[in-house]
Design a protein around this nucleic acid. Structure first.
Length: 779
DNA sequence: GCGAGCCTCCC
DNA sequence: CATGGGAGGCTCGCA
């Protein structure tokens, strides 16, 4: 090529662009790689394969149907930065090619391609990816820069970003009307005059979106750094904490939109500011897609607006101390952008939710009130007896070190780090055996001691079930079982809870409304939904504070009752309506002990299979299958219902609950089909049972508060309350709960299946006494 | 520092 | 062969 004659890189191997000229879409890469040079075709190496995968998934044309070229014709020496001079030299050639092809859309992969096309060498791909650009040389052609697939190969975590941008490119190519996120502008509210001007502007608006940045995630300990209020596209007021006034949150008729507003509102309310959450873009997004981990603002703004992944650019500047270290201009830009994007994505999401009557109902009746309700439950917190916790901590530490001594007495003579490394291929091994390492334990049990667990189960697992199959074969087995049990209780339930005790002596969990695909809540930091029930001692550190008692209420067998209603199975229904003993009847039908019948009853509702029953009961899979067969023979309509769910998966139908929750089963393969079908059988049952509990708790909150009773925890189908230490009040609270919890299923589901409830009362959570509604009779 | 894999607690 | 929904602690390998 003559163009190369004067180029500093003229002696390096070159490959020409693809010969597909009759196309309206082009891809521009950086420079050919070694495989490309070898085969004389652009993008055939690993990066090319990644690119193909992304193109295919978003249904853009195949690479062969596009014009494919590179910013550099040749493969210049590695390591050295690509010379600007050479890029400029090659730029004329690149632009010339594209003028000839005249594509509608150009995908620019990586910095170099973007620099060359845009003739701007200061742009950063991490900042610009996903924006629609126009080159000074190619008017009318849309250019979308994105990460280079080779960069993604080095940082696979970035695939999501590349994929998201590619998806956006596909939309643009398909001619979708994509809003341009624009560039955010903000003004800092510095003076009282500024504040008044802001109030005047906000008073003319129907809705605004807001966001806060904080020094940390704990509303009781951390501080607000800045608040952003977006009132028009790209227009944001930014306030330092000293400029926050309650008036701004009390503007009549003004609706506030947040993204995960529960978090922001906690901080603002702690400071006496009456912030309200009328709308929440995270919850809107979750209503539209029940999958978890895809509702953060960064992903949504890129997907909906094609916004660049702005979180990226701040992250590098944020040190260990989080946003506190960020210089004000960066902090302001960040909060402004978050608020701006929240406002911009709101309409799209809200319209989509409102277009579906079920989703609209779900959003308005459960999500929005649920968010505010859970904020109050979190704020109430659960009281912890710290003296008892400390006592247990010392006791368990002592106990653990004794077990450890005994384990080492047994294991150390058998432990040979060098042999362990040779046998297992481990890179390193400690001098002392670590019972916390499942790999080391497996080596010891299976390779050194050559233990053979009883039963047919194969594999080198060291879980409790497998260990129990080796019980009595070696003294280390019993010690390991005890070690596991004590270590778990100490690290997770004693030290794990201790870490989260706040200054008020309580733990304040964080509930997620968007944490599960079924609509159950999830709880974290600490998780107050998996506190040991079978080891009540640990649960006893959660107590009633002085002057209070704990009251717990739960729907008994909620999921089976939901199944009875949803499937309409006559026998299952009448069993509940007539208050018969289901476990006894099933035990008879299955010719099994009551305890097994009970396990099957609950297991059916959880969607458990013959394999899991076989394991639990220690019977053959055939025997367990017979149990299920007998159960479903007894309740044929329930079987019909579950088969219908499984069919929905194959037919690609979406399951919808009476509360409006949706479950789609996505891409079905031969690998995941039976897995998805099991999920489908359980979805509605689990989902409805938890929504009934949430709905009941929300409805009971106010009348209970009037009695001085606070809701302090929700565990799927049970509610934990803190009640004044008074029999009369307890009785009234129980009546309120009894009334509401029996009404809610009737009203929400229109069912005549009774939803019975159980009460427990006491002072320590692990030690509650079962009581009847009328236990505290009026004198 | 982060993700994967293992294990164990809950409904 | 595996097989409902979560959180989280630990080890280990990789960056």
């Amino acid at each position: 090529m003559d163009i190369c004659v004067n180029c500093v890189y003229n002696r390096y191997p070159k490959i020409p662009p693809s010969t597909t000229f009759n196309t309206d879409i082009a891809i521009v890469g950086e420079a050919p790689g070694s495989e490309e040079i070898a085969r004389k075709i652009p993008f055939v190496g690993p990066a090319g394969q990644l690119l193909n995968k992304a193109l295919k998934t978003v249904q853009l044309p195949d690479r062969e149907e596009m014009f494919v070229t590179n910013a550099l014709l040749c493969r210049p020496p590695q390591q050295k930065p690509k010379l600007k001079q050479a890029i400029r030299q090659c730029q004329k050639r690149l632009i010339g090619e594209l003028e000839l092809v005249k594509p509608r859309l150009i995908i620019a992969l990586g910095n170099i391609a973007m620099h060359s096309l845009m003739d701007d060498f200061d742009l950063k791909i991490s900042k610009e990816q996903g924006r629609i650009m126009e080159s000074p040389f190619l008017p009318g052609t849309k250019i979308i820069p994105m990460l280079h697939p080779a960069a993604v190969l080095r940082a696979p975590g970035d695939y999501k970003l590349l994929f998201g941008t590619m998806q956006y490119a596909a939309k643009v190519y398909a001619g979708a009307d994509i809003p341009d996120p624009g560039k955010v502008q903000w003004e800092v509210v510095e003076t009282e005059q500024d504040f008044q001007r802001m109030m005047n502007v906000l008073s003319t608006k129907k809705k605004v979106a807001a966001d806060i940045e904080t020094t940390g995630l704990n509303p009781r300990r951390d501080d607000i750094l800045v608040v952003g209020v977006a009132y028009d596209k790209n227009k944001v007021f930014v306030l330092r904490p000293d400029m926050l006034r309650r008036e701004m949150f009390e503007i009549p008729g003004l609706e506030w939109i947040w993204h995960n507003g529960k978090f922001d509102i906690q901080f603002l309310r702690r400071r006496g500011l009456p912030a309200m959450g009328h709308h929440d873009t995270m919850l809107l997004s979750y209503c539209l897609n029940e999958h978890t981990g895809i509702h953060d603002l960064g992903q949504l703004s890129t997907r909906i607006l094609g916004a660049p992944p702005y979180k990226h650019k701040v992250k590098s500047k944020v040190g260990k101390k989080g946003f506190a270290e960020l210089p004000e201009p960066d902090l302001f830009e960040r909060v402004a952008e978050d608020a701006d994007y929240t406002l911009q994505i709101f309409d799209t999401l809200h319209e989509k939710v409102c277009a579906n009557e079920q989703l609209k109902r779900l959003y308005n009746r459960i999500m929005i009130p649920g968010s505010a309700f859970l904020r109050r439950v979190q704020r109430n917190g659960i009281y912890v007896n710290q003296d008892l916790l400390q006592e247990y901590k010392r006791e368990y530490q002592q106990h653990l070190s004794e077990i450890l001594d005994r384990i080492l007495d047994i294991a150390q003579p058998l432990w040979d780090p060098e042999k362990y490394k040779r046998d297992t291929g481990a890179k390193s091994a400690p001098e002392v055996f670590n019972p916390g390492s499942t790999y080391q334990l497996a080596w010891l049990l299976y390779d050194v001691l050559r233990l053979k667990p009883r039963g047919r189960k194969k594999g080198r697992s060291t879980d409790a079930e497998m260990l129990s199959k080796m019980e009595g074969m070696h003294p280390i087995i019993d010690e390991m079982l005890e070690y596991r049990s004590v270590a778990k209780e100490l690290s997770t339930y004693i030290e794990g809870v201790e870490k989260h005790i706040a200054d008020d002596g309580r733990v304040h969990t964080t509930f997620k409304l968007h944490g599960t695909v079924t609509g159950r809540l999830s709880s974290a930091e600490p998780n107050v939904q998996n506190q040991p029930k079978r080891k009540p001692k640990v649960r006893n550190i959660f107590q009633a504070p002085p002057g209070k008692r704990l009251l717990e209420v739960d729907y008994k067998g909620a999921e089976l009752r939901v199944l009875a209603h949803i499937s309409g199975d006559p026998d299952l229904r009448t069993c509940f309506i007539e208050g018969r003993d289901l476990h006894a009847e099933v035990a008879e039908a299955l010719q099994a002990p009551r305890i097994r019948a009970k396990a099957v009853n609950f297991g059916i509702a959880y969607g458990r299979t013959e394999y899991s029953f076989a394991e639990e009961f220690g019977v053959s899979v055939e025997e367990a299958r017979q149990y299920l067969y007998d159960w479903f023979a007894r309740f044929p309509k329930a079987k019909e219902y579950m088969d219908g769910c499984a069919r929905a998966v194959v037919e690609g139908r979406t399951l919808v609950t009476p509360f409006g929750r949706h479950r789609r089963f996505g891409l079905i393969t031969s690998e995941n089909l039976s897995e998805l079908q099991n999920e489908s059988k359980n979805f509605v049952i689990q989902s409805v049972a938890s929504d009934l509990t949430l709905m009941s708790a929300m409805r009971a909150e106010k009348p209970l508060r009037d009695l001085g009773v606070k809701i302090i925890n929700l565990v799927h189908d049970s509610i934990l309350l803190e009640c004044p230490d008074d029999d009369g009040v307890t009785r009234e609270a129980m009546h309120v709960l009894d009334d509401i919890m029996s009404k809610v299923p009737k009203e929400e589901l229109g069912t005549d299946v009774p939803f019975g409830i159980d009460f427990g009362v006491g002072y320590q959570w692990g030690n509650l006494e079962e009581v009847e509604v009328d236990s505290y009779a009026t004198q």
